[in-house]
């Protein structure tokens, strides 16, 4: 077999392959342009954008953890206007499929950011962030409750014609329920998971290691948790699911595809290995060739779960 068909269809969007970069770990793409052929990726998901510029949280903003890191960047960004004027054109010119991660402190703000991005070419979807643990207003406040999560999605849906991805937090009683709520509210796709609320302290200075005291854990450390969340959500909804959380190798990515994710986002490992996304894409291709699978969609969601007694 010469090559495989890596393209995947996620509801209204079609990606040339299932490998995307996760928001907050890949800047606005350009930062990695010397190292990664951006147009070869399924999509680049850019750093979270809000209506107004946000300075972010006080430092220290990151602390290393076992096989991962905890961050409390606090959605520092230049605001949607500057993003459209200064950051987005580069990706548009290079024909890189872009997903814009959006964030608001109120339902109205989410909707307004979405409406500003509505006519931007090259933006194949908006990813609604209702799961950031690092901000006081908005973020996880919306994502930890089915009805508020649904309200944000409905409001965004009204102001944009772009497909909507809703990015969920694992820090809820039932991620499946939240996924169902955003599906009902009109989300085209769900993505899970965002970082897991976490903290670190210094036993000598007796102070928190993050300026914001708490942050979000990401990296290989959270992969098994993320995989279980994706597994749960895939059973609970009919819309496509994007798997995120600790993916560092092609094998990791394939695990998420196996449990039913239609695509994956490669996140924190971009910091350790800037070429990880492209290496993962190559690894998936090689795996499928080895396995004699000509179409990646034939592999997605083929996990064999034997019910009790069948073993």
């Amino acid at each position: 077999m010469k090559d495989v068909n890596l393209s995947v269809t996620l509801g209204p969007i079609k990606l040339k392959n299932p490998v995307m970069t996760a928001s907050g770990t890949f800047g606005y793409g350009r930062e990695f342009a010397d190292l990664v052929p951006l147009e070869e990726l399924g999509a680049v998901v850019v750093k979270g954008i809000s209506l107004k510029p946000r300075p972010g949280n006080p430092p220290p903003r990151i602390v290393e953890a076992c096989a991962g890191l905890i961050n409390s960047v606090g959605l520092e960004n230049p605001g949607v206007e500057v993003f459209v004027k200064d950051k987005l054109p580069y990706l548009q010119k290079r024909n890189v499929p872009v997903v814009v991660n959006i964030f608001g402190e109120s339902v109205e703000e989410y909707a307004e950011v979405a409406s500003i991005l509505d006519d931007q070419p090259g933006v194949i979807a908006l990813e609604i962030n209702i799961s950031c643990p690092n901000v006081e207003a908005g973020g996880m406040v919306f994502g930890s409750n089915s009805s508020t999560a649904g309200r944000v999605v409905e409001a965004v849906k009204r102001t944009t014609s772009k497909p909507i991805i809703t990015k969920l937090s694992p820090q809820v009683t039932s991620i499946a329920e939240i996924a169902q709520a955003v599906e009902q509210a009109g989300s085209d796709i769900v993505a899970c998971i965002n970082t897991i609320p976490a903290m670190a302290v210094d036993i000598y200075t007796r102070t928190p290691r993050l300026g914001n005291v708490i942050g979000g854990l990401s990296g290989p450390a959270i992969k098994p948790i993320a995989l279980k969340c994706v597994f749960d959500v895939v059973q609970a909804v009919d819309i496509p699911v994007i798997g995120i959380g600790g993916i560092a190798t092609a094998e990791d990515a394939l695990e998420f595809l196996l449990v039913g994710a239609k695509a994956v986002q490669v996140g924190s490992v971009n910091l350790t290995n800037p070429r990880a996304s492209i290496e993962i894409l190559e690894g998936i291709r090689n795996f499928l060739i080895e396995q004699g699978i000509s179409n990646v969609e034939d592999y997605i969601g083929t996990l064999k779960v034997l019910s009790h007694g069948e073993n």
């Binding site: 930062e31 430092p59 903003r61 990151i62 960047v73 971009n270 800037p274």
Partner: peptide
Amino acid sequence: MGCGLGACLGCA
């Protein structure tokens, strides 16, 4: 530092 590339904004 996280990335060193200006992407993660961790070194503010």
